[in-house]
Design a binder for these strands. Structure first.
Length: 422
RNA sequence: GGAGAGAUGGCUGAGUGGUCGAAAGCGCUCCCCUGCUAAGGGAGUAUACCUCAAAAGGGUAUCGAGGGUUCGAAUCCCUCUCUCUCCGCCA
């Protein structure tokens, strides 16, 4: 969420950002400011009432200590009214606070000034591209290759769990393990600390990274225990430092984590979910950064460049999109999507999305650091995939297939696979 | 899953109804002293919010979390969470 003081000082900017992100109704901005005013007035009133009552209680204590019981009794009799008043103000305050917070949660993060204004994915800007997307007619989509080689069993996955929960067999299972190891090792070599995280989180964590309240439907839940199955390692890893005050020397902090990810993906259909394009469970290596606010712009660029380097090492053609305001999401200030080329489908597949959240997540999580002046300040958080597996696997199968029907193993994966060809 | 013990400031640890935001020690910061070092002396050392143009100052809340009793709660009562010990179960 945004800082209420920032909203007060920049109300037009916040409204404009909201409108650019596609929110037609920006009234929450005025509403939250009004509510905040009301809240602050009530705080003042309550604090005064409490000060009064504390003063009396102290006097009573003194009188009791001096043995002046009757005078004390007189004072006690006087306190009845103010007690009731305090209680009423407390109730009012907690209602106002809740309303103020609910409104605050409705206001999206303000897009960075470098982000193109636009309505939909059609307005995203191609930031850069690498490699030559190939268009050979004979190339099969990955689901055909996988079926022929008996590498992926979607049907048994459906029987055992449901649609979108495939089994991987033999060399395909090994390829996934190879990719996970390759991605983790690369990240560690680039200064990220490897971290293994819980696969379920509680409600506070889901709220901390912004899955609740706006993206609740994306997650699988375990109601009996109050758990949410993580839709990405971003959730547990970013929450790792929730409610902490870091020292400036700690920053920047880089983490990398492999986890399975679970997403309900309600409403998806057709070619979007064909094969490995969209699954309910998939594997991903995630990158998370906690940085000084002055650094988050450059940290986003280095995060993107690192994720791109993985695709270059795998020799998979890709393009990088700078997401426009309308397509970037609620919590981000700026976001790049990396899309790998799928020659069997003749389309781009998103395999990484690198985002800067500014202080938006940190404020929800109360994740702060002591700055150079010794003041506590919100850290900036960033994350990106490095990378998501299924679409990489799809692209490898299609890009590295030979006319003879085999699939070559990308050079960098050969040490992990132990074979050159599948 | 059953039984019991506990949760206090950066750390250790006192505090069972009144002047306790909290003793003491350690650590840390600054200053003084000592020709280095060691030792010693003094001051300071939580977070959030409200008020204030800002600083200073003032106020409020916070002793695991939430609720209750009371004029007054770290201290009493209830619920929850977490940690530890024992039993059971188990990769």
């Amino acid at each position: 969420m945004l800082d209420i003081n920032f909203i007060r000082d920049n109300r037009e900017l916040v409204k404009q950002g909201m409108a650019n992100k596609g929110e037609k109704n920006t009234s929450a901005v005025e509403l939250v400011l009004n509510k905040d005013e009301e809240w602050r007035n009530t705080v003042t009133e309550l604090d005064l009432a409490r000060a009064e009552s504390n003063k009396k209680a102290k006097q009573i204590g003194q009188l009791m200590g001096q043995g002046k019981k009757e005078e004390a009794q007189d004072l006690i009799r006087e306190t009845g009214n103010s007690k009731e008043r305090i209680k009423k103000l407390e109730e009012l305050l907690s209602i106002l606070q809740k309303e103020r917070e609910d409104l605050l949660y409705q206001i999206p993060n303000v897009p960075d000034s470098s982000v193109p204004v636009g309505r939909s994915d059609e307005d995203n800007v191609v930031h850069s591209s690498w490699g030559e997307p190939c268009g050979d007619e004979w190339r099969l989509p990955h689901w055909d290759i996988a079926a022929e080689k008996k590498w992926i069993d979607f049907d048994r996955g459906s029987k055992v769990a449901g649609a979108g929960f495939p089994f991987y067999l033999g060399l395909m299972a090994r390829l996934q393990r190879a990719l996970i190891n390759f991605f983790l090792n690369e990240a560690v070599a680039h200064g990220y600390t490897e971290i293994q995280a819980p696969y379920f989180v509680n409600e506070d964590s889901a709220r901390g990274t912004g899955q609740i309240p706006d993206k609740e439907d994306m997650m699988y839940t375990v109601p009996r225990d109050g758990f949410y199955a993580i839709p990405t390692a971003e959730v547990p890893v970013t929450n790792f430092h929730r409610d902490e005050i870091l020292s400036m020397d700690d920053l920047p902090i880089y983490y990398t984590a492999y986890t399975p990810c679970w997403r309900r993906e309600a409403g998806s259909y057709g070619k979007e979910v064909r094969g490995l394009n969209r699954l309910h469970q998939f594997d991903k290596v995630e990158l998370v950064k906690f940085v000084h606010p002055d650094q988050s712009d450059t940290e986003l660029e280095s995060l993107r460049e690192y994720a791109e380097s993985l695709l270059q090492n795998l020799k998979l053609p890709y393009r990088t999109l700078l997401m426009c305001t309308g397509d970037m999401g609620f919590t981000q200030t700026k976001k790049y999507d990396l899309e790998v080329w799928s020659p069997g489908q003749q389309r781009w597949l998103e395999v990484s999305s690198c985002s800067n959240f500014g202080s938006f997540q940190a404020r929800r999580m109360q994740l702060r650091f002591k700055n150079e002046k010794g003041k506590t300040e919100m850290v900036h958080t960033l994350n990106g995939s490095g990378l998501a597996l299924p679409r990489i696997v799809a692209s490898i199968l299609e890009t590295y297939q030979t006319e003879a029907g085999d699939v070559l193993v990308p050079d960098v994966l050969r040490p992990y696979m132990g074979v050159d060809k599948m």
